[in-house]
Design a protein around this nucleic acid. Structure first.
Length: 245
DNA sequence: CAAGGAGTCCTCTGAGTGTA
DNA sequence: TACACTCAGAGGACTCCTTG
């Protein structure tokens, strides 16, 4: 589903109205004709499409993020997939006030980058890494990764953010990232490692154990890269559930 | 182990729309 | 124009549940 297939978010257009528009054969902005709804709605949709085209040309993710209801944020993904930044952090615990960030991995434009505490994990490098990230994609990142990073570094991550935890819930997938991956058949190199192990691996690294950091980094990167497969799968599945063709 | 975003379910209001 | 009906959308109270 691309944003050009969407009419929801226009004032006065909800789930049912959009479905009725689709069922009348209008599934794309290009096919819209005001007659498929009443006069006022028709005008508003027309205006939305005109404005929308400009914002689409400008790759203005924030505009559509603002237009769509929260529960329909997943619709941003296909259109702005190539501007997405998948990311995941590891920390020494769950408390953003007391614990510290150990590694941050970002996957964008097909490349994966990892910043490591005590080495290159700095506010400046984070700002640079997130500079072109127009759409954040995480798992539980709204509640964990973003507030944690903002609490520990002078960085602003307020921007469109697709948190796959809620997207997964929409299609009945719950139970954490590892469980969800298992449910949809995403393979892992090291299925034995968990977030808690990430805490232990960092401590081992600090006490000088060879290989601990490498394991932690590869775990963090795998988490991050898997987010892309997950996003593809889940938004595809929602598309099939929702879209009328 | 900390902590709050988002979903669910509910009610209520009023705008928008089609019909007569 | 009057009317009935459908929805959208907001607000409140509650619950759920994940991250290292």
């Amino acid at each position: 589903m691309r944003v050009e297939n969407s009419f929801i978010g226009v004032d006065g257009v909800g789930e049912q109205t959009e479905r009725s528009i689709w069922e009348q054969g209008v599934t794309h902005w290009d096919e819209f004709e005001p007659g498929v709804v009443g006069g006022k709605r028709g005008d508003r949709i027309q205006r939305f499409i005109e404005e929308g085209r400009d914002h689409l040309d400008a790759a203005d993710v924030a505009y559509f993020d603002h237009q769509f209801p929260n529960s329909e944020q997943w619709r941003l993904y296909e259109t702005f997939r190539d501007r997405a930044c998948f990311f995941d952090i590891e920390t020494t615990g769950l408390d953003e006030q007391r614990n510290q960030v150990t590694t941050v991995s970002l996957h964008q434009d097909g490349e994966t980058e990892t910043l490591v505490a005590g080495d290159d994990l700095t506010a400046g490098n984070l700002r640079a890494a997130f500079a072109d990230a127009d759409l954040l994609v995480t798992f539980n990142g709204k509640r964990f990764d973003v507030p944690f990073l903002e609490a520990n570094f002078d960085i602003d991550l307020q921007r469109p953010h697709l948190d796959l935890m809620y997207t997964c819930k929409k299609i009945g997938l719950s139970g954490g990232l590892k469980q969800v991956e298992k449910d949809i058949g995403i393979e892992r190199d090291r299925p034995d490692i968990s977030g808690r192990d990430a805490v232990r691996l960092w401590r081992e690294h600090e006490s000088g154990r060879d290989g601990a950091l490498e394991t932690l980094v590869s775990y963090n990167r795998e988490d991050t890269v898997n987010l892309r497969t997950l996003a593809d799968e889940v938004t595809g599945s929602l598309h099939d559930d929702v879209f009328v063709r």
